[in-house]
Design a protein around this nucleic acid. Sequence first.
DNA 1: AGCCAGGCACCAA
DNA 2: TTGGTGCATGGC
Length: 295
Amino acid sequence: MKLFVPAEFNFEENVKYLLRSSNECLHRIDNNRIYKALSVADETPVIEIRAGDCRELVVRFLGDTAPSRKWVRAEVARYVREWFDLDRDIVPFYRLAESDPLLKGPVQSFRGLRTVGIPDLFEAVTWGILGQQMNLTYAYTLKRRLVENFGRSVDCEGKTYWIYPTPDKIAACSVEDLAVLRMTVKKCEYLIDTAQRIASGELSKLGLLQTGSHQAAEKMLTSIRGIGPWTANYVSMRCLRFPSAFPIDDVGLHNAMKHILGRDSKPSKAEIRQLSAGWSGWESYATFYLWRVLY
DNA sequence: AGCCAGGCACCAA
DNA sequence: TTGGTGCATGGC
């Protein structure tokens, strides 16, 4: 299966992003190829993604996991397009970045990097919750424990691939069930609550997208206990894909600014507002490129 | 050993 | 709206 990609896409830059944690459990990189198991309807195709000859990605199904139904294959293609934000024209972002003191360097260094997404809402929200006020290394450890305790695995061609837990599964958990992962009681409660809302249909990606604006989606998300402005914007950025989503209080963003500006302390909030004033409409891409500076 | 992490709820003005 | 505080837990 071949997917056409825009000119402003560089496979290796995106692979480098995916390589940032050696503790990642939801995909595997080998020889510049990405391997991942997906869950579509009752099938669990395992895919390999590599760069094709000319402005294309080649997706191959491993083992006997090629979906028989056409629409399932289409869903896999849709997932990959969304994962790498392939249908967005980011030329305007590059244009505004050229004259931006913070973005100028990063867009040169990482040209072709997209805001790598988390297409599944439950995964996006819970990954956000896991990452709150936590060093990333430990957040990855918690994710691995969550996945290995409550997700399921697919064995294919001698490797094991993990699939993220379903909302149903976590919704049925008690705080004690999740406490074995060794995270705070609050985080356990937030995960279960989110799972229950998604399992019941009260919270859905479609519902959030239908609000029409990033602000409305943010409001809906922050009405949930455990989801504050940072997580709401993180989800808006990586799952809902509102380009204006902006986790402005993110400490990683602040550190990247400090680093690029050569300061010895993080910028104040007023300064951050000033520095990001020119990003209007592209805050999510600006944030993602600045995060990349720190890896 | 001590500061810091891809924050959040809660409370006061 | 903004600005503090407590929180819990592990990395480095």
